Computed example of a mutant assay.
Amino acid sequence: MSATSPARSRGDRPESAAGGTATLAEIARAAGVSAPTVSKVLNGRGDVAPATRSRVEELLHRHGYQRRRGSLQAAPLLDLVFHELESSWAMEVIRGVENVARQEGMSVVLSESAGRLTPGQTWVDGVLARRPTGVILVLSGLDPAQRAQLTSRDIPFVVLDPAGDPGDDVPAIGATNWQGGLAATRHLLELGHRRIGVIGGPDGIMCSRARIDGYRAALETAGIAFDPALVASGDFHHEAGYTKGLALLRMPDRPTAVFAGNDLQALGLYEAARELGLRVPQDVSVVGFDDLPLARWISPPLTTVRQPLTEMAEAAARLVLDLGRGKQPGTLRMDLATRLVERASSAPPHAV
Rank of each mutant, 00 (worst) to 15 (best):
A344S: 15
S299V: 06
P166F: 03
R45P: 10
Y215L: 07
E58C: 08
A35Y: 00
Y65V: 09
E190C: 05
L80P: 12
C207Y: 05
G126E: 04
D143I: 14
G11H: 00
G44Q: 09
L292Q: 04
A217V: 01
P6G: 02
S208C: 08
E86W: 09
V109W: 07
G277C: 10
V33N: 01
G330V: 01
E112L: 05
W123N: 03
P6M: 02
P144A: 14
R209A: 14
D47Y: 11
A101I: 09
I224P: 09
A75N: 15
L323N: 10
T4Q: 09
V284P: 13
R95Q: 12
A35W: 00
L248V: 06
R279I: 01
V38C: 02
Q307S: 08
R250K: 13
R67T: 15
V170I: 12
Q149N: 12
L249P: 14
L294F: 06
L249K: 14
I224A: 04
A3D: 02
R216A: 06
M206T: 08
L276D: 03
L246Y: 03
P202Y: 07
G241T: 01
V284N: 08
E275A: 11
S87C: 11
R186I: 02
G105N: 04
G181F: 04
A22Q: 11
R45G: 15
G261D: 02
D253R: 13
G167L: 07
I199Y: 08
G201Q: 05
D47G: 15
D47H: 15
P144H: 07
L142T: 03
A51F: 03
E104W: 06
L264S: 02
L189S: 03
D169W: 05
D161G: 07
H193K: 05
G268V: 02
A217T: 06
I155S: 01
R296E: 06
L78T: 12
G174C: 10
D47N: 15
L60P: 11
L264E: 07
P144C: 05
P119I: 06
V33S: 03
G223N: 10
V320R: 10
V38H: 00
A25S: 13
H237A: 10
V287F: 00
S71A: 15
A35C: 01
V286D: 02
R343D: 04
P348Q: 13
W89A: 11
R102I: 04
V284R: 10
A217F: 02
V41P: 12
P202V: 08
L110M: 11
Q103S: 13
V170N: 07
L72P: 07
L230M: 14
V280L: 11
R53P: 12
T303C: 02
L42F: 09
E314M: 11
A7R: 14
G241I: 01
S345I: 05
V108Y: 04
R10V: 10
G19F: 01
A217P: 02
A240T: 12
R306F: 03
L72T: 14
S299G: 03
V198G: 09
P162N: 02
A30P: 00
E314F: 03
T176C: 08
L80S: 14
A172T: 09
G19Y: 00
Y65K: 10
H350T: 15
V100T: 06
P119H: 06
W123C: 08
L321P: 12
G120W: 05
D253C: 11
L77C: 14
G115S: 04
M206Y: 08
